[in-house]
């Protein structure tokens, strides 16, 4: 490369503003290559535009749930209603229900009564706007032989003509709303926390989808939206809550929240109301007259995986 540089007779018209006033073949090639590389990089990254992580600047700039003022929350709920309407052509009723004073929820499930019909699973899906395909379900029903308690060898996929099958019992498992929740401890962005009424909630707008909480949960209660959730328009439950059953987007966690859009309005959860046998019982554990308090006092309740120290608010029991 020792050849002498040919001197151009004068500066070319496009070279105005260049300090040295020369444009060599080399510098031209370099500039073109840099430009091409830049364009090519943009072109190669363009599939990222299809990701709709943030549907609006408003959502991107939104503060953490706990830092929102009431006025800001009103605007956020309005935005959510707008987005839901745009996607599902249904005007939802979105609220931000706060925990009630003097209320701590607990759940009890009578394993002697459960027949394993999985009606609770689908009532939950309908109530909480879970994705139908890909499928997200908060409740799993595990079939185990009588006299055993080996969850690892339990069967989720039973499909006989009729349940209950002789010699087996069925154990539904969902979020246990632990008093010492490992999922909350591991969240790096504080997108999930425990509320004063005992419900561990998720701010779907704050979740970064790292799935640490899913790994931390000993009950496999958390679900991740790997795909874009799909809910048929006519199946959408319009009664929504910010921390509860509003539609989620791809890439966030979700889980059972004791139907907080119902229970914080005084109603029973959907899974309880649909249970044909009445195996599920729910209520305020701080009220000594409640059904749940009676069960905790009079039945031999136990919790799942007691040894991991999570102190669940979900109790199981057998009776006669």
């Amino acid at each position: 490369m020792a050849e002498p540089k040919p001197q151009p007779p004068g500066p070319p018209p496009w070279a105005h503003g260049q300090h040295d006033g020369e444009l060599t073949r080399r510098s031209f090639l370099r500039a073109t290559a840099a430009l091409a590389a830049g364009f090519a990089a943009v072109a190669a990254l363009s599939p990222l535009r299809e990701l709709q992580k943030y549907s609006s600047v408003e959502e991107f700039l939104q503060k953490h749930y706990k830092e929102l003022t009431p006025a800001e929350m009103t605007r956020v709920l309005e935005r959510i209603a707008r987005e839901v309407e745009r996607e599902y052509q249904v005007r939802p009723h979105v609220r931000d229900l706060k925990p009630m004073n003097g209320v701590e929820f607990a759940y009890a499930l009578n394993l002697t009564r459960c027949i394993g019909c999985r009606k609770c699973v689908h009532a939950c899906v309908a109530e909480n706007n879970q994705s139908r395909s890909p499928e997200i379900q908060y409740i799993r029903v595990i079939k185990m032989p009588n006299g055993t308690f080996d969850v690892e060898r339990g069967d989720h996929h039973y499909a006989p003509e009729s349940v209950p099958e002789k010699g087996f019992y069925y154990m539904p498992v969902q979020c246990h709303q632990c008093k010492s929740p490992p999922c909350v401890k591991v969240c790096p962005v504080k997108a999930t926390w425990q509320e004063p009424d005992g419900i561990t909630v998720i701010d779907y707008d704050w979740c970064i989808g790292c799935r640490y909480c899913e790994a931390a949960c000993p009950y496999w209660a958390r679900r991740f939206n790997f795909g874009k959730p799909s809910i048929p328009k006519e199946k959408l439950n319009e009664d929504m809550s910010y921390l509860g059953n509003r539609p989620r987007r791809q890439g966030v966690m979700e889980k059972c929240h004791f139907c907080l859009q119902r229970t914080r309005a005084g109603r029973y959860p959907a899974c309880l109301e649909v249970c044909p046998t009445g195996a599920r019982k729910f209520g305020n554990v701080l009220d000594p007259e409640s059904e749940i308090s009676y069960i905790l006092k009079h039945k031999r309740v136990f919790v799942l995986k007691e040894e991991v120290g999570t102190l669940p608010r979900f109790f199981y029991y057998f009776d006669v």
Binding site: R118, V121, H122, E135, H156, H157, E161, S162, P164
Partner: peptide, 9 residues
């Protein structure tokens, strides 16, 4: 007894 609803897919 009754027919169980579909399990997880």
């Amino acid at each position: 007894g009754r027919k169980p609803t579909p399990g997880p897919h």
